[in-house]
Each structure stands twice: as structure tokens, then as C-alpha cells.
Amino acid sequence: MLEVQDVTIRFGGDTPAVDNVSIAVKPGEIVSLCGPNGAGKSTLLSVLAGDLPPQEGRAFLDGRHLHDFSPQELATRRAVLEQSPTLAATFKVKQLAGLSIAIEISPDTVREIVTDTLMAVGLQHRAENRADLLSGGQQHRAHLSRVLSQLSSAGVEEGRYLLLDEPTARLDLIHQVTAMRVARKAAQQGVGVLVVLHDLNLAAAFSDRVALMHEGKLVAEGTAEKVFTGDRLSEVYEAPLQVDRGPSNTVRVSPIFFADSG
């Protein structure tokens, strides 16, 4: 289990970025972290990733303090896709996809893993292209393939975690679904997935649990049906939102637009 207990993070200023939050991700489940801009989602993800030591509270990976892991050890247990991954070199897509593999394995195994993960994100036909010349969305998928390769090469069967910070933000509709299917597939293989999502409908469709954050605090946590209520969402987002059911009976959130008469 990857968890934080009573974590508070302050960047200076009066309001903490994360305010006394406890949350856990279990192997095999997808937890979506939702909330308006500036709610503290990415900061919380950074604590879970081991980037940011909690100023108050504790962070554990399978019962052991996160900061007791070496970076190398941590890399075999959890992989992280940042919100805006970058690349300052002219690597080919296949090189980028294998870059984060953290242990020594044979070039043949690397090739197999990279082929698989590029296929999973739909970039197999771009393997030989330069990654820095791809479109923004394709680059994002190449980085997703990189973190998937890192996780599947780790040689650890149990207790692996995947942290995705807005993996769908730069993707078209179809590839948003592809990315979430990739997360689902990882979860089926026992990986615990935490994903920061702005699209509440994607969150509702693909998550086992959702967590809603507002001004650093965890407002509600549970199934999408329980957490995503019209009143609660309208309050958190400070805008009128309506919740009903979509075609396959999934929770569907839509904003209520008013034509501006102003």
C-alpha cells in the first residue's frame, strides 16, 4: 500500500498547499484525484512519489517510510508521469521509452518491453522517429510508455505503484481513453494506480475510488457515485454542475452553461 497519513505541505503563505491529508492506494486499484486548479493534487502526488518529504505527517510504501528508500530502490517500486514531461535531447521514441528502466537487463529484454509499451500507447509506428519532433500529445504518450517500461522491467511482482499527473490533459478523446485503459491494464496486473484527473467523467468511468480535493483538503473519498454529487461538486468548483447517468449507467458530470446576457 502506498499511503500518506496526516500530511501537510506549506510553500510559504498562510494556506497550506496540502492540509492534513490521509490517503492510500492499494495494489490493483485505480484511485483518481480530482479537484479544481490549485487544490493541491499535484503536490500530494509529489509527496506520494517521494519528491517532497512531508513537513508534517508521514508517507509509507508497504509499511516502510518513503524516505528510507534509495532513489534506485524506489524506481523499481513506483513510476511517475509528470504533468509536463520534457526532453532536452534528440532521442528516438524507442530510446526515450527505455530510458527510465532502472535495472541492468539485456538489450533484447529492453527491446521487448519497449515494443510492448509503445504498442500499449499506440506509438509502435513511431519507434524510429525523433521523440522531440513528435506532437505534444504524442510526446506525452511516449513518456507514458517510458514510465510503463520502467515499471514492467522492475522485476518486482507485488507492491508496484503508478502515479500519473494529468495523463490525459494533452490527448485527443480517443487517446484519453487509451491512456486510461493502460492504467486499467496495469491495475489488473496488480499495480496500484493514482491518477490526477480534471475530466470527472473519465475519473468516474475508470476509477475504483475517487478523491476530491479543495484548497489543500481532502473533501470526500469513495466511489464516484457517492463522491460526485451535484451539490458537492458545485460547491467545490464554485460553478453550477449537474450529475446524472450516462449510457452505461456511469456517473456523468456536466456544467450547466448560462448564455451570457451581459
Binding site: 512519489a49 519528491d51 532513489p71 509528470e82 526515450l96 527510465s100 513518456h143 517510458r146
Partner: peptide, 10 residues
């Protein structure tokens, strides 16, 4: 890939 991603990669 940046210092943070480098840390994530071990």
C-alpha cells in the same frame, strides 16, 4: 528528461 523525472527513474 529533467531532474525530477531523473529522480523518478532511480
Amino acid at each position: 528528461i529533467g531532474e525530477r523525472a531523473a529522480f523518478h527513474s532511480g
